[in-house]
Simulated scan of single mutants.
Amino acid sequence: MAMKELKKSSVIRLNIGGNKFCTSVDTLTQREPNSMLAAMFSGRHNIACEEDCEKGYVFIDRDGTHFRHILNWLRDATVPLLEERCKYSELLREAEYFQLVGLTEEIHAFLNKEDDQIAKLDAELTRRDIINFILSNATMKFRGFNLSGLDLSKLDLTKIDFSYACLRNVCFSGCDLTRVKFNYADAEGAIFNNATLTSSEFLGANLRDASFVDAKLRFAKVDSACLVNCSFLRAILENAQLYNSDLTNANFRDANLIGSYVKDVNLQHLVGANLGILTAYRNGFICKNPDEIR
């Protein structure tokens, strides 16, 4: 059905993969206004939905096992206590599907909390040390350093060399990482949301479970990297080079790869990405803008 104009107090009945829920427009739209759920029920867009004939339930074809946790997040901003770690991975996938960026970041933080506490004890430098080094030496290299668990968000880290460094669970959100080298770095669980990574390098890097939501990776070089479970939701990878990398369960939904060169990559993992028109080039493909094809 086409969504009708709804009041904030309106009751919404949802059928998520056979699991039925009742909530309000206010709950679905207020906490995460840029999410898919907010877009569906705010009235900003006329989105077509399937309607369950029983009592007017709106049907969404997803696993509803964890949807109650999503509703509780939207109501109270709470991350649930789940018995098994794998359940958080399942919840994370649903949060990414519904584009709940706040919940996604909180799950990452929750999963890495204990690891962060341990890693911070082992980290060789602090955030203040990093800032002081940058101020004193613009060409500072952190090759091989253990910086695990540090919060480096919103720093200007341009041209820094993090090759071979341990960057597990480091928060780079909002950083300027232009021309930064992450070659052979262990950045598992690192957060790069809203970061600028123009012309950055990721040769042989471990980026398992890393988050690149809304990141800008124009002209980035990603070669033989582990991108398992990575989220590139709405990321910009224009003119990037994507070679020989493991993209198992990676999320490229609404990502832009126009102008990128894709080689030895399973294109099934790029479902939902803007690939334009794939043109064969050497042993790979160039994702060209359809307007440039004559």
Rank of each mutant, 00 (worst) to 15 (best):
L155N: 07
A95D: 02
A119V: 04
K7G: 12
G284N: 04
L278T: 04
T196R: 10
L227R: 06
R294W: 11
G276F: 10
K141H: 09
I107G: 00
N34K: 13
L275P: 10
L257D: 04
D209F: 05
V265W: 15
P33W: 02
F192D: 00
D63V: 09
E5W: 08
F202G: 03
L92I: 06
D151R: 01
F252W: 02
L237H: 09
H45Q: 09
L74I: 15
S245H: 11
A195Y: 13
I16A: 02
F67S: 03
D223M: 06
G272S: 01
N19W: 15
C166P: 07
T158Q: 13
G276P: 06
K8P: 10
C287Y: 14
A250F: 00
E114I: 08
P290V: 05
L100W: 06
L74F: 15
K221R: 07
V213R: 08
E51D: 12
D52L: 00
K20R: 14
F110Q: 13
V271G: 06
R68C: 11
N239P: 05
K113Y: 11
F21K: 06
F59Y: 14
N274D: 14
I60Q: 01
S89A: 10
L82Y: 13
L157V: 03
C22G: 09
D151H: 03
R168Y: 01
G272C: 06
M1E: 13
I107V: 10
D214Y: 13
D116R: 10
L227E: 03
N146Y: 11
L177D: 03
G56A: 05
K221L: 07
H269M: 06
V170Q: 02
V79K: 00
R13F: 11
R68S: 14
Q117N: 11
A220P: 02
D246Y: 13
D151M: 03
L28Q: 02
G17T: 14
L207T: 00
G259R: 05
S24P: 08
N15S: 09
S24A: 06
M36I: 14
T279E: 13
L207F: 00
A220G: 02
H269S: 12
D26S: 10
N251R: 00
E90H: 14
L167K: 05
R234M: 07
G64F: 02
A187I: 01
L157Q: 05
L233D: 01
E84N: 10
D186M: 07
R13Q: 10
L197M: 15
N274Q: 15
N137Y: 07
P290D: 02
I293G: 00
W73H: 08
R282Y: 11
I70N: 04
K55D: 13
N19M: 14
L227N: 05
L81T: 13
I286C: 06
I118W: 14
S260D: 08
D122K: 15
R218G: 02
L242S: 01
L247W: 05
G149K: 01
R208C: 06
L233W: 05
K221S: 00
S200M: 09
L81S: 12
D151Q: 03
R208M: 12
L81C: 12
E96R: 01
V25F: 09
D61V: 06
A205F: 12
N251T: 00
D214A: 03
S245D: 04
A240P: 09
D26K: 11
G272F: 04
N283L: 05
L121W: 10
L257H: 06
N289P: 08
F67Y: 07
K87A: 12
L91G: 05
